[in-house]
Simulated scan of single mutants.
Amino acid sequence: MIKRLYEWTMSLAARPRAELWLAVVAFIESSFFLIPADVLFVPMALARPARAYRLALVATVFSVLGGIAGYAIGYYAFEALARPVLAFYGKLGAFETLRACAGPDTTLILLTTSGLTHLPPIKVVTILAGAVHIGLGFFILSCVLARGARFFALAFLLRRFGETIRHFIERRLKVIAVVAAALLIALYFGLKLVAGSGQLLSC
């Protein structure tokens, strides 16, 4: 099923209203859809490099809006909607583990890593942020920064290097994003430690 869904998502890039489909996939990815918007974004940006930054903006805006929808599901309808969605994707156990230690610091880490690297899946973290009532303003800002960084970095690489960078993106970009996220997190906690602000982790 996942392979067919992946192939269907990729096929949307060739449709006349591909940009609209990108907005739809970016939105639903952040709350319940399994396939990341990158699958659609990369071939679209390769096909029309001059529109790469426009596509990155569309993907970022609708990913953030989808994140807000996921947040609302977690905040207002966890039992009715979020729990069945997470159970369907086999993510309920992982969610409960994250929920057990979802203090401000831990949630900041998860929002950063999910936005940059899809680890853990962004839909899990958006629902989590709503379920534990993280501040909405903080949540939106983190989504804009993390998701925007990912899509605009992809747009830059695809405009600059074209098809030659595609293999690198598909094979190595996640590793680089993980390292970048780890460095940002280490810097954050290093500054907290120097400032003597107390407990670093909530669990």
Rank of each mutant, 00 (worst) to 15 (best):
R4I: 04
E7V: 04
T9N: 02
L12C: 04
A13D: 08
R15Y: 08
P16I: 03
P16R: 14
P16S: 08
P16E: 04
R17Q: 11
A18C: 06
W21K: 02
A23K: 09
A26Q: 02
F27E: 00
F27P: 01
E29D: 10
F32L: 06
F33C: 02
I35A: 02
I35G: 06
I35S: 07
P36A: 13
A37T: 03
A37R: 00
V39E: 01
V42F: 04
M44H: 09
M44P: 12
A45I: 15
R48F: 00
P49V: 04
L57S: 13
V61M: 14
L65C: 07
G66N: 01
Y71N: 12
G74T: 14
G74I: 05
L81I: 09
P84I: 06
P84N: 10
A87S: 14
F88N: 09
Y89P: 02
F95A: 12
L98G: 03
R99G: 06
A100K: 15
G103Q: 08
P104T: 13
D105T: 11
T106K: 01
I109T: 06
L110S: 11
L111Q: 14
L111I: 13
T113R: 15
S114M: 11
L116H: 00
H118C: 13
H118W: 12
P120D: 11
K123T: 10
V124Q: 10
V125I: 15
T126G: 09
A129K: 08
G130C: 08
G130P: 08
H133G: 13
I134S: 14
I134M: 14
L136I: 15
L136F: 09
F138P: 00
F138D: 08
F138A: 08
A146S: 15
R147C: 03
A149M: 15
A149T: 15
A153M: 13
L158A: 09
L158E: 02
R159Y: 05
G162M: 08
G162H: 05
E163V: 05
E170Q: 03
E170H: 04
L173T: 11
A182D: 02
L184W: 11
I185Y: 13
G190L: 06
G190M: 05
L193P: 02
V194A: 08
G196R: 07
S197W: 09
S197F: 01
C203T: 09
